[in-house]
């Protein structure tokens, strides 16, 4: 029972972590909290669903193509919608991401209806016996995919020119600009990356909780909670924070109550912001004047 709960907690945490990473990627680069992140992922998961059911593409191929399309969608969104207002008050940008939320959410409902669909999983469903515990291969698969995405991000940020520029920009925007980093390009890239990573999250969530136009709302809330635990400006912090949320939620659901899981996330958000505002791991950041 215990090992089972831990594995499914980690799997859930991995899903949250992918969305949390997408949120933190954009926030680090632009100081914008993208409230539409989950809805964009949901929308792309519906697109993937069309690829599977109507175009009859093989599932593994969809897992490659859909995130690329998700990245493209986010890139276009950044160029058309976000960039024109990037010099305005930050509150306006926030309102625009909420507008995007509404648009993606209800466009999906409008096109595909409001009923849940069963979404195929990449991994077999029957549990396997591993050292005495019955573990779902789906959970293990989710964890593996998430780890692969994280490894990819790590390589990108450590070993590529673009990645290094983005890291510099997120540490000190003005200094990076002086050193020739193009801030607008960094914003564009971060949206693109986040769009891809978010889509992977959607593809992993859908088989667990059915594909439906509201499936990402509570995932977004948990991803926020995890990212805040991690300080909201650290990619590894977001991963660890989301893993903790996943495990805590699984145990809470397993031992206490399943009805109030969202309430639990809300409490985490308020309490962490009050008592550890810079997250569990990082030091306080200061604004320059």
């Amino acid at each position: 029972m215990l090992a089972q709960l831990i594995v499914s907690g980690l799997a859930l945490g991995s899903v949250y972590a992918l969305l949390g990473l997408a949120l933190v990627l954009i926030h680090k680069a632009t100081d914008i909290v993208n409230f539409a992140q989950g809805e964009m992922a949901m929308f792309m998961t519906f697109v993937a669903f069309v690829m599977i059911t109507q175009l009859e593409l093989p599932l593994p191929l969809v897992f490659v193509v859909a995130p690329l399309l998700g990245a493209a969608l986010a890139a276009v969104t950044e160029r058309i919608v976000m960039r024109p207002i990037s010099d305005g008050p930050p509150v306006n940008a926030l309102i625009v991401t909420i507008g995007l939320w509404i648009v993606f959410n209800h466009t999906a409902g409008w096109i595909w209806g409001y009923d849940p669909y069963r979404f195929p999983s990449l991994f077999p469903a029957d549990p396997v016996e591993i050292v005495g515990a019955r573990i779902s291969p789906n959970s293990l698969g989710i964890i593996a995919v998430a780890l692969a995405v994280m490894a990819g991000l790590y390589v990108f940020f450590e070993y590529t020119r673009e990645g290094t520029a983005m890291r510099a920009a997120s540490m000190n925007r003005r200094a990076a600009q002086l050193m020739g980093v193009n801030i607008k390009r960094v914003a564009f890239l971060s949206w693109t990356l986040a769009g891809g990573v978010g889509t992977v999250c959607g593809l992993l969530v859908a088989p667990i909780i059915f594909l439906d136009f509201e499936m990402m709302v509570s995932v977004l809330l948990k991803a926020f909670a995890g990212a805040i635990l991690g300080g909201f400006n650290s990619l590894p912090g977001a991963v660890i924070g989301c893993m903790l949320i996943g495990i805590a939620e699984t145990f809470f659901g397993g031992y206490v109550s399943t009805a109030f899981k969202d309430t639990f996330a809300f409490l985490v958000i308020v309490l962490v912001l009050m008592f550890r505002p810079s997250g569990l791991f990082s030091r306080t950041a200061v604004k320059k004047v």
Binding site: V96, W101, T107, W110
Partner: peptide
């Protein structure tokens, strides 16, 4: 069905 989509679009356009 499109009503909320119109809300969202007007929200974005308004900000722009």
């Amino acid at each position: 069905d499109a009503q909320m989509v119109v809300y969202g679009l007007t929200l974005i356009l308004c900000m722009q």
